[in-house]
Amino acid sequence: MSDISNTKPETGAFFPRDRAWHAPALTPAYKTSVLRSPQKALLALDNTLSEITGPVFGHAILGELDDDLIHNFAKRGESAIGERIIVHGRVLDERGRPVPGALLEFWQANAGGRYRHKKESYLAPLDPNFGGCGRTITGADGAYRFRTIKPGPYPWPNGPNDWRPAHIHFSVFGHGFAQRLITQMYFEGDPLIWRCPIVSTIPDRRAIELLIAPLDMANTIPMDARAYKFDIVLRGRRSTLFENRMEGN
């Protein structure tokens, strides 16, 4: 909380979510959505304090290796197997302003495409030095970065031969609970992106393209790691500067 205490707190309502830009709830090609999608219309409500406010996380929660998936589960002196990469970018709002103090949590499969999870059944081996989770908090300019290995693609039981493109899952907290977002980042050039039923739940190709991180040679660490850039945009707020106040409020 101390990290953003010198910026004026924002109290405006968020812009309405563009529901046509996001995936609809029911996307039959992604079979699990069939029984898990609400069928009735959502109840629209202008934001109240419950949505305008949200939990804020300070850097004090972070451990030294939280942003280093190559080492945060590895035995001392060892490291995870795989292509070493840096993932970095900025968290912005829809008005293009940086979102400082945003908590990002990420999780991913190992280099062979295998998750460390008891329900995971893919035959690719576990890496004893890779857990698959990490987190960080954006700085004053909304920037973040973490170190990991490039996850492998993996098959999943949807169609008879569906494969997920290589991806990293992101969970994002901005400053208001209405900004809460979970998404996935993909890697430039992966031919599986355009064959994936989960990617294809998103109707607008431009929205998909914004989930694909380009290779960013300017931010590589020579002889160590390549870099991919992934910016995240959260909902923006209406300005409260000239807001009408109702009588008696």
């Binding site: 995936a23 008005r95 994002v172 998404t183 945009v233 923006g236």
Partner: peptide
């Protein structure tokens, strides 16, 4: 104006 990053399922993991 920027567009909000599209949501994707949280998945099984």
């Amino acid at each position: 104006q920027l567009k909000e990053t599209a949501s994707q399922t949280a998945g099984p993991y």
